[in-house]
Nucleic acid binder design. Structure first.
Ligand SMILES: NC(=O)c1ccc[n+]([C@@H]2O[C@H](COP(=O)([O-])OP(=O)(O)OC[C@H]3O[C@@H](n4cnc5c(N)ncnc54)[C@H](O)[C@@H]3O)[C@@H](O)[C@H]2O)c1
Ligand SMILES: NC(=O)c1ccc[n+]([C@@H]2O[C@H](COP(=O)([O-])OP(=O)(O)OC[C@H]3O[C@@H](n4cnc5c(N)ncnc54)[C@H](O)[C@@H]3O)[C@@H](O)[C@H]2O)c1
Lengths: 207, 207
DNA sequence: TTAACCTTGTGAACTCTTTCACAATTATGA
DNA sequence: TCATAATTGTGAAAGAGTTCACAAGGTTAA
């Protein structure tokens, strides 16, 4: 496939969100100009992004809201469901498990793991927490496709190594750690401290 | 000041993390080559980033770990403490409040707000949860500098408007909403659903 | 002190991303 | 049916960000 930049993928997510809203509000068509206005982009940017995947619009009219929404869903893989496992049922892990929106978008948290004997075996939001020592076996058996890491930073690399061993190709990591994975594994790290650091940088340098 | 790109700021955060580790491990100096290796960047990238803020290195030797760490801390504003308020003490909000690392980095959560009468007045991790209706007054009185938004998406714009009204210039938002702020306000949104969408895109397109 | 070596800091070149600008195409209203 | 208006899709131009390449300056060891 042609090269799709990270920024383009992010914008596709944003378009998708807007299109869902527009659909709910009853809009039938939307132009690149309107989408751009909402997302504070240029119309050309919107059209370039979409044109990477085909010609979805109608000249003179714009894009059909429903059609474009579904097209983007299919590009992002949101027309499927994905089996997700979460490792580390602590503060962050619990918050993620109780978040209903993920399932609505097709991200189904099927397995929970921890290494704390007090948590293992407990039912958490309808899912039994399993022992992380069985991680590789369980991930394979349940045909898990994505893993979320929410363990302490000093445990993260070790856990990720197991996850990779189980053949998982995509990982979302919340631990503030510099984690190494093989090239064919796609890992994204959400680092909230870095976000705060960005704020303090802005505060110092903008004023 | 010269233009500093968003990517540069992110990388500075990453360098800072590495330097703290290197310091702990007893390293005295580090070269751009070594830093680059650790962070999977090019040495030139590391040097370009740093050179935006001055000449911190020594030719033939590299950078002094401690000195560079402190220099970056000062660039990112991590040599100060910041007063932070958090709005929405739910799943995400609670996780953030109980996270000790933020305070260690100088981000002090001083105030909590909610609109749920059952939560207001309760002591949460040593902080009394206040009524969001007093938001503007309290933010001003406590000289809060940053705000974290962890309310439901449909409440976020309304709450942010109040925050802006209180004169706050930097906001970290966890609600998946397209929030508008005036130009002089710096807002960053952490959208976890978008991160998962990135994973599913990768899964569909990499294999 | 000197020679060999190493690493920075930075213009220039290169690459990637965004914006421009317009032909092509469709919608719409007289 | 036709003229006018609107909007897409896309090469080309412009702008940003990254990497190259090397002079300048510092280290190290004999
Ligand atoms: N809490 C926050 O707001 C916050 C903010 C930013 C980053 N983080 C990061 O997110 C991660 C989780 O944070 P948290 O606050 O939920 O921590 P936590 O201590 O509440 O939860 C961690 C969980 O992981 C489990 N665990 C530890 N080692 C494990 C292992 N080897 N295998 C399986 N499970 C293991 C623990 O038993 C615990 O249940 C950490 O890396 C933290 O740095 C958290
Ligand atoms: N839980 C997650 O893992 C997760 C994941 C992704 C995104 N988010 C987003 O983070 C935000 C918070 O999620 P959550 O799971 O913590 O929700 P939650 O319902 O657990 O918490 C929201 C809190 O905000 C309070 N609140 C509601 N309206 C308010 C108002 N107007 N002023 C002040 N407080 C108000 C509620 O009383 C509640 O305490 C939401 O926007 C959610 O979409 C959460």
């Amino acid at each position: 496939m042609r090269k799709v930049s990270e920024s383009t993928v992010k914008r596709l997510s944003r378009y998708y969100r807007v299109l869902r809203l527009l659909e709910k509000e009853g809009y039938v068509t939307v132009s690149s100009k309107e989408l751009a206005k909402i997302e504070k982009l240029t119309p050309a940017q919107v059209r370039k992004d979409l044109s990477l995947f085909g010609s979805f619009g109608t000249r003179g009219l714009g894009y059909k809201v429903l059609e474009l929404k579904e097209k983007i869903a299919s590009i992002l893989g949101l027309d499927k469901t994905w089996k997700v496992a979460l490792i580390g049922v602590g503060n962050v892990g619990s918050a993620l498990v109780s978040y209903k929106e993920f399932a609505k978008q097709g991200f189904l948290i099927k397995l929970l793991f921890d290494n704390d004997q007090r948590k293992i075996g407990k039912n958490h939001k309808g899912i039994i927490i399993k022992d992380v020592k069985d991680l590789v076996k369980e991930l394979k058996e349940s045909k898990i496709e994505m893993v979320i890491i929410a363990v302490p930073a000093d445990q993260a690399q070790k856990v990720v190594d197991q996850v990779v061993k189980a053949g998982i190709r995509t990982i979302l990591n919340f631990a503030p750690a510099n984690i190494k994975v093989p090239d064919q594994v796609f890992l994204r790290t959400v680092n909230m401290a870095m976000e705060l650091e960005h704020l303090s940088f802005a505060l110092i340098n903008q004023i």
